[in-house]
């Protein structure tokens, strides 16, 4: 992966997508020693409304720090899908939360769906880890960092009391996508 690879996480403010972006950037730049730049929507609109985080990863130093055409995008809500699932590269991919994005944007990219919030509630019992499930899913879909690097970065970020919870959430997101891809 010499070229720049751009990932966007979008959803509602408060869903932890900026944290997911930061963890991915840490996995790439601190664990894997690549180059990464992470940025996010900043301003009053980020609270409550649609929020996004972007991560650019490359083997080379990164010049322009914002997204140009996105290789992979996550949309957790319909509003985020409408607002941020745009500018996806031809052949790129979009992951949506099945229960919340009813009208997936159409384009020359692959759309994957997964009940992310429902999985967090039903299989982990904690909705709060939906962002980590989504992170595991996006890493499984993109291979932009290895499964192990992603997990290391997750564990570096979370408080000790929540390590098992997040480890489980990350693995679940990763496995679900691998099952999806195997179908």
């Amino acid at each position: 992966m010499a070229e720049r690879y751009e990932i966007r996480f979008s959803g509602a403010g408060g869903q932890g997508l900026i944290t997911a972006g930061i963890i991915l950037a840490e996995a790439a730049s601190i664990v894997d020693n690549k180059y990464a730049v992470q940025s996010q929507s900043y301003g009053p609109e980020a609270r409550g409304g649609a929020s996004k985080a972007e991560v650019i990863i490359s083997d080379e130093p990164i010049d322009y720090p914002k997204a140009t055409v996105v290789d992979a995008c996550l949309a957790m809500t319909q509003e985020a899908a409408d607002k941020y699932a745009v500018g996806i590269k031809p052949g790129g991919l979009l992951l949506i939360d099945t229960d919340f994005v009813k009208n997936a944007p159409k384009g020359d990219f692959k759309v994957y769906d997964m009940p992310i919030i429902r999985t967090a509630k039903e299989e982990i019992g904690r909705e709060i880890v939906a962002n980590v499930i989504a992170l595991g899913a996006m890493i499984a879909l993109t291979d932009v960092v290895s499964r192990e690097s992603g997990e290391t970065a997750v564990l570096r970020k979370v408080p000790e009391a929540f390590i098992d919870l997040n480890k489980k959430a990350y693995s679940l997101g990763f496995e679900k996508v691998k099952e999806l891809l195997a179908k």
Partner: peptide, 10 residues
Amino acid sequence: DEIGAHMRER
């Protein structure tokens, strides 16, 4: 500028 101030890098 705001981008330089808020973007994260290694």
